[in-house]
């Protein structure tokens, strides 16, 4: 464990807590894409298949349970909780996210480190996570007003993978044979997808204005 990875995990945890806070306290999911949340459930479900078979550390297992539990409960809230579901704008959140999964599955079957069930599922979860934010970013372009909590949620979610990139660089230089091109490239693509969001988020913060992505 290094500080970059710890910072990444804490930033990821913060993003999930901000979203849960928003949904649980103000009972609103306005501006939040259910499609992205459903993709994240699949990302974690396919990433943590080994949660009961391989034990790395208490921290690792605890964080896996937190990410699994929070992503499932966010989807549950947005789908089945009456008050929250009412604030979900279904008309705008129309990204065909199931079509995102197909290329990820195909790519995982083609490009992976080992052709085993676990490894292919794990690779699939990496590819899917890289593009999981797309429905949310599309929804953001459509809904003009972005409330602070949603903006913070996306900012933290994008930032965590950026810390992971620093972690991969650190591990590359400190651990012999630590080379994982698949993880690195999908992590880089994932972070780059946030580039324009980060730009407008920074501008809104600098000019102290409401965050607005151009149409």
């Amino acid at each position: 464990m290094n500080i970059f990875r710890l910072a990444g995990d804490m930033t990821h945890l913060a993003s999930v807590l901000v979203l849960l806070l928003k949904i649980h306290t103000i009972k609103s999911c306005a501006g939040v894409s259910l499609k992205t949340q459903e993709l994240y459930v699949i990302v974690f479900a396919t990433r943590y298949l080994d949660i009961f078979t391989s034990f790395v550390s208490i921290y690792n297992s605890l964080m896996k349970l937190i990410f699994l539990g929070s992503s499932f409960s966010i989807v549950w809230y947005m789908r089945y909780h009456k008050a929250v579901h009412r604030t979900y704008d279904r008309e705008q959140d129309t990204f065909r996210h199931w079509f995102l999964m197909l290329p990820c599955i195909l790519l995982a079957l083609l490009i992976h480190e080992k052709f085993t069930f676990f490894e292919v599922m794990w690779t699939f979860s990496l590819y899917l996570e890289a593009v999981a934010i797309l429905p949310q970013l599309v929804l953001l372009q459509r809904t003009r007003n972005i409330d602070n909590l949603t903006g913070q949620y996306i900012f933290l979610l994008g930032g965590y993978r950026g810390f992971y990139i620093l972690n991969w660089i650190y591990r590359y230089f400190t651990e012999p044979h630590y080379v994982h091109w698949i993880t690195w490239i999908s992590g880089l693509v994932q972070t780059l997808l946030y580039a324009d969001f980060f730009y407008y988020y920074f501008l809104s913060w600098k000019n102290n204005k409401k965050l607005q992505l151009p149409a």
């Binding site: 990875r5 790395v56 964080m63 794990w122």
Partner: peptide, 10 residues
């Protein structure tokens, strides 16, 4: 140390 193939990252 976790052997190489064990995923130690989240």
């Amino acid at each position: 140390v976790a052997p190489d193939d064990v995923k130690d990252e989240l």
